[in-house]
């Protein structure tokens, strides 16, 4: 365990997994692009119904949380166990805050009668139905990834506390960190595509 060869192999394995994630969301973005070409006017009109401020806040939350996770790797490598655990706890808290915002955002939309298959949405023009379909699918799948990322970060906090992640052995933290950064990366594209289009 912990030999140089293992480290390289585990990293390649993690990146291969990340490629499948990129293609998963990439496929959905291709779908977005195709429908944008067809329903550009309705996409732009519907995009303005989303709360841009909430989208901005969630973008800042994820960027800062990504910084915390990157900083936790630096802390572990500098032998600061407490620092690493604090950074990771900060990232988990920010992930929770992100989900809380999503809860209010989706809740508000449900309150307005906007959810997949809702009667009110069914009477809308096709572009608006497709936009909300993509919105709920993509942000829902992304929120699920946030939940999984938070679980992984909590495991990393525990492993750091138990001394299983430390200065000479931090591969698990690095790989879980890569996952969290990827989830942030996907949001970097979701944010302008849904919240900023004009």
């Amino acid at each position: 365990m912990g030999s140089h060869q293992d480290t390289v192999g585990a990293r390649i394995g993690m990146w291969l997994f990340l490629y499948t994630e990129i293609m998963l969301f990439g496929g959905l973005f291709v779908l977005y692009g195709a429908y944008y070409r067809i329903h550009a006017v309705e996409f732009i009109g519907t995009g303005q119904e989303l709360d841009m401020v909430l989208g901005c806040v969630n973008t800042v939350i994820l960027l800062v949380s990504s910084f915390f996770v990157a900083a936790s790797v630096t802390a572990v490598r500098r032998n600061s166990t407490k620092g690493a655990m604090a950074f990771l706890a900060g990232a988990v808290l920010l992930g929770g805050l992100f989900l809380l915002n999503k809860y209010f955002e989706w809740g508000h939309k449900f309150h307005l009668g906007i959810y997949p298959g809702s009667p009110g949405l069914g009477e809308s023009p096709p572009g608006r139905i497709v936009f909300y379909g993509l919105y709920f699918t993509i942000t829902g799948l992304h929120a699920f990834h946030i939940v999984m990322g938070m679980v992984l970060l909590i495991v990393c906090i525990a492993m750091t506390g138990l001394g299983r992640i430390q200065k000479e052995r931090f591969l698990l933290l690095e790989n879980c960190g890569l996952y969290w950064h990827l989830v942030d990366l996907i949001w970097i594209f979701i944010f302008p595509l849904f919240y900023l289009i004009l």
Partner: peptide, 13 residues
């Protein structure tokens, strides 16, 4: 967005 993701990839990742 591409510039932002490049920064995340190059430094954070």
């Amino acid at each position: 967005a591409g510039m932002k993701s490049a920064l995340v990839l190059l430094f954070f990742m």
